[in-house]
Design a protein around this nucleic acid. Sequence first.
DNA 1: CATGATTTGGAAATCGTTTTCTCGAAGAAA
DNA 2: TTTCTTCGAGAAAACGATTTCCAAATCATG
Lengths: 340, 340
Amino acid sequence: MGFKPVTVKDVAREAGVSPSTVSKILNQKDFGSPETRRRVMEAVEKLDYRVNAIARSLVTNYTDTIGLIIPDLFNPVFSIVAHAVEKATRAYGLRLLVGTTDRNAQVERDYVNLFVESKADGVIFYAALNPENILRIKRQNIPAVIVERPSHVPDTDIIGVDNHHGGKIITEHLLSQGRRVVGLIVGPPEGEVERERIAGYQAALIQAGIKPDPELMAVCDYTIESGFTAMENLLERRPDIDAIFVGCDIMAVGALRYLHVKGIKVPDDIAVGGYDNTLSQYTTPLLTTVAQPFDLLGEEAMRVLVDRIRKKRRMPYQQIRFTPELIVRESTAVMEKSLS
Amino acid sequence: MGFKPVTVKDVAREAGVSPSTVSKILNQKDFGSPETRRRVMEAVEKLDYRVNAIARSLVTNYTDTIGLIIPDLFNPVFSIVAHAVEKATRAYGLRLLVGTTDRNAQVERDYVNLFVESKADGVIFYAALNPENILRIKRQNIPAVIVERPSHVPDTDIIGVDNHHGGKIITEHLLSQGRRVVGLIVGPPEGEVERERIAGYQAALIQAGIKPDPELMAVCDYTIESGFTAMENLLERRPDIDAIFVGCDIMAVGALRYLHVKGIKVPDDIAVGGYDNTLSQYTTPLLTTVAQPFDLLGEEAMRVLVDRIRKKRRMPYQQIRFTPELIVRESTAVMEKSLS
DNA sequence: CATGATTTGGAAATCGTTTTCTCGAAGAAA
DNA sequence: TTTCTTCGAGAAAACGATTTCCAAATCATG
């Protein structure tokens, strides 16, 4: 009802000084005489005063708030990144506004508008849907950092992982284990990320003198079910497959499931390689996968963003690429035949 | 540099009216003549005007922002809830500030202060650490909703799941499959949630005429590794165990892993029941588990919170309990011996 | 002791909205 | 036509901080 939060005025009255003095003592390290400092601090303590960040922002033009736009929080890939970003904002003493788009460009746009209205100091886009939305933020003079595509937005810092390399090393690994007919289950190839991984996969095959065969590739979305059916379709088409590279651990779980149901042994009959290293410790057998440094991705995105916010001066735009790492586990042991 | 966002003044000038008129036309459904409405709307469109939410909040005393305090975003349990909460805030046209505590009470306190400063309209606590922090929010007249413990904060809406029932049904299920020596791996029993689940487990045993044996219980934190070692310790102590109830899917994965490594067959030798239904579709064998309606938890928390924010009038505090559901999968089939 | 330099702390403007409050004009009723 | 009501639109006062700007007080220096 008649609830009134404590304001700087109340503190001033309590300490017997003016509001401006209170503000200065609270914000400037070396303002005021020891005596007034003490009085003000005591008043603050006594009244349990907390600055009204809204009022402050209105005059300083800083909200100390970062916006994060991300497809969802359900897929471990995203929740790990979100967690890393959140930890980083905390370390920088900032707030984090989170928006998930559920892969809907209109929702993405709504969040962009919301963040503009909120006067966020900066925005991180993870797997942005529409580059236009990023430009919209930049047009409002709000710094933005892009994590993992799109990579063709001008004048923007971009953080990512070398997907070509990732696709290549996992495929090379499968080949090195004596496999020859390597299938590929991958997300929609319209995406940059997916295209790169496919290219890496193909490069590894060609390097080994094997011609990539479109018949060996199955497309699916990022669900367990689609991994299951993709594996099914692929094996119906090509029963001679002896290894499969699945472009995401979630889908790999679906593929493993199908193989398990059909009594096909992993890795004896078919070797399975995943991607992301998110679920690979939960599966049986443990999944060989390509680990992406998701936490680093989040940390770096924040670091670059904060740099851009604080150092107003023109700083060259950065494009940071991390190198993914192969983690070998049980699902891709050497083939029995090549052992004999 | 000389970047100036478009303000209500600019719109007013463009439309040839006063700022107050612009504000009223934008906010009150039926203000102004059709002619002025048109002029103002055109100006807004032309200048791509977006309200400054900061300035608005200062006068309206609403920020349209909700705070969420949650242990982390890494455990699927939390990320699913966070996702549900985020979706709900979006549906209500609100913003979401997210704070993860990493189970550190000091961090929780920092976030409470931050949310107070941010003038959040309301706060949702998931698995809060220190009740004092919740009281601190309420003392600032900010509505709070507690999800899953602590349940003893006065004058607060509380949303939760019936953990006693959950522990009971999974144990009953194990017993109904012919198991007799049912072990328990559970999180730190200081927690209310854990205590309730233990009580449910014990109730089921007693009901079946079995005396609960402390030796059959192992405590661990919420990691795969601790599930692994807990299973190990338990079996060393009591090799006669023929079923195990693990209080969290993540730890169940660790337990399954140990059994797999030791060549102990699930469910033939030991039946395994999990809790949460988060990873249970990823495991081999598929994990029987107790499903919690995490998305509902998030939705309801938001619904109750928004109610409390909008209807200022004194509304009785609610305590909502959902009933968890048993999901039977492969890891708890009927025992072989009882079949013969 | 006088002068200049520095420090201290207050008055007032400002940030961009929303919200009274008020006045004049238009419309309705008599 | 007159009077009463309603409605449209602007002026000005908030909201709660920060930030000039300035006067007074303090200090150092010759």
